[in-house]
């Protein structure tokens, strides 16, 4: 009987030879590989991040005291805008070549696939932004005490930005000019992260205990991890079927 069961690997050895990743790892690897092949998309948000931060001393004042005061807010706003800028391309190419439809039709849990795509997006924008942030901090005369707060708050905050932004990207993926619309939909939702993120940096500069800020940023991240993929999945289904 056992031999006649269809779709069963002949033996374990063969199965291990053609090892297939789960939906999460598979989607993650695929997205990372695709982005790696298009390096310009990878670098553009970082350049944008750097440029926005350069505009502030030019536009307002190069005075170190003043810059040090506004640095936490400026770095956070720049990170937020850079994340937003890269959001539009998250589902766009998959939608255009039909991959997205296959993903929705496949029996794999959409939740995992979506989470993997967002994680890949964060690894390619949020993480480099976080690593680049100390450089901006130096350029804007952020006191050295603030650096740890800056990096940790960005590390906790940027994944939330990616998760929330992905909802906007999923809602607008079927539209031809989604770019500006995403900002309109998503920016109000970014405000809590901005408030607590920049407050954490400010707190680090003044030497306040930071546990509370990080706890709140972490709480927002966990809420986002649980809820956002559901909203993203629902939004993708609506956008693709419409």
């Amino acid at each position: 009987m056992k031999d006649t069961v269809p779709n069963q690997p002949a033996n374990n050895e063969m199965a291990s030879e053609y090892k297939v990743d789960g939906p999460f790892l598979g989607a993650l690897k695929r997205d990372l590989l695709l982005s790696y092949r298009r390096k310009s998309d990878l670098v553009n948000p970082l350049i944008f991040f750097l440029m926005v931060a350069t505009l502030f001393p030019l536009g307002v004042s190069p005075d170190p005291g003043f810059l040090a005061e506004v640095a936490p807010g400026v770095v956070w706003v720049a990170a937020l805008l850079a994340t937003l800028l890269s959001m539009d391309s998250l589902f766009r190419s998959d939608f255009e070549d039909g991959t997205l439809e296959q993903m929705l039709l496949s029996p794999q849990p959409l939740y995992m696939v979506v989470l993997a795509k967002v994680l890949a997006h964060w690894m390619l924008t949020g993480l480099p932004l976080t690593l680049l942030a100390p450089l901006l901090g130096v350029m804007l005369f952020l006191p050295a005490d603030g650096m740890s707060g800056l990096v940790i708050s960005l590390l906790l905050g940027t994944p939330t930005l990616s998760l929330v932004g992905a909802i906007g990207a999923a809602l607008t993926v079927g539209l031809r000019k989604g770019g500006v619309l995403i900002s309109l939909l998503v920016l109000p939702l970014y405000i809590p992260v901005l408030i607590f993120g920049s407050a954490a940096v400010q707190g680090a500069v003044t030497g306040l205990p930071l546990g509370g800020y990080f706890a709140i940023l972490g709480a927002m991240l966990s809420l986002g991890l649980v809820m956002a993929p559901l909203a993203i999945g629902a939004a993708l289904r609506i956008s693709v079927s419409g």
Partner: peptide
């Protein structure tokens, strides 16, 4: 349907926004 999803996301966010502001 799209606006309904966005409105629900906003509804979840309103208390968080209010608290943080």
């Amino acid at each position: 349907q799209s606006t309904a999803v966005l409105a629900l996301v906003g509804l979840v966010n309103i208390p968080i926004i209010k608290y943080s502001v």
